[in-house]
């Protein structure tokens, strides 16, 4: 489970995140929508322990990420917009390295290969150098690393950005599978339509605040977009009214 309680981050005098209260239960995927600078990546960074909160707590599976940084990361997977791999190593070797860093050094090559295949990487690509991989293939290695780590919670930062439609569709399918397998997933994205497609709930962020949370099944694509655009208007009254 991913949980924020009154989580805030101030850089100097600017609030990057203000009083965030959020719970992502197991088997749930929450998508955070918002313009650039709305606080989505700051939220992810706070859950990763990269940033020290100014106030409040960030919990992953009940562990405060700042008090127990290693324990909280044990079952946590992070997939950024660009999954960074070592171009001179094969997909399999990259996976071996990142799973070893997470403390799983007992996998055989065959087992690691299975994780990559389950993540959707073609068998022929597994032993190829990652320098030849497309963005979608790198994302699959990231997913495989999460699977190999036996992650139960996922933090995704713009994972769909730049993927071609086929790769985005495959990635959406993977996310749905993970959700059905009981993973708690928090995803920051700009892609309203993919968010609607995969998320259980959609949070809308603006100027560091979570201004709305919507059950994704309750609205159609067009309605969701309209609500989003309404939130993104620089009209404090509208936003405040809806947030209340």
């Amino acid at each position: 489970m991913i949980e924020a309680r009154g989580l805030s981050k101030v850089f100097g005098t600017a609030w990057a995140l203000r009083e965030l209260d959020l719970v992502v239960a197991q088997g749930e995927l929450v998508a955070l929508l918002g313009a650039n600078g709305a606080g989505k990546t700051t939220t992810i960074n706070l859950f990763l322990g990269f940033l020290q909160p100014s106030s409040g707590v960030a919990l992953v599976n009940g562990q405060d990420v700042h008090k127990a940084p290693l324990a909280s990361k044990r079952e946590l997977a992070y997939i950024p917009e660009q999954v960074a791999l070592y171009p001179m190593l094969t997909g399999l070797e990259n996976l071996e390295f990142f799973t070893a860093l997470a403390g799983h050094t007992d996998y055989t090559k065959a087992q690691l290969g299975e994780f990559l295949e389950r993540a959707g990487l073609a068998p022929a690509a597994i032993e190829r150098r990652a320098g030849t991989y497309s963005k979608g293939m790198r994302q699959k290695v990231g997913i495989a690393a999460a699977m190999a780590k036996r992650a139960t919670t996922f933090l995704l930062d713009e994972p769909l950005s730049g993927l071609d439609p086929k790769a985005a569709n495959e990635f959406s399918t993977t996310l749905r599978n993970l959700k059905h397998e009981g993973a708690a997933i928090l995803m920051a994205t700009h892609d309203i339509f993919r968010a609607k497609e995969v998320a259980s709930r959609i949070g809308m962020m603006k100027a560091g605040r979570l201004v709305d949370q919507i059950d994704s099944a309750s609205l159609g694509h067009a309605e969701l977009e309209a609500v989003y655009l309404e939130h993104m208007r620089d009209d404090a009254a509208t936003v405040t009214a809806r947030a209340s």
Binding site: K73, Y78, V83, F98, A102
Partner: peptide, 13 residues
């Protein structure tokens, strides 16, 4: 530069 440092940091290295 590659972004792998961030990836490693997310594993708790």
């Amino acid at each position: 530069e590659r972004g792998t440092l961030r990836h490693m940091m997310s594993t708790g290295v």
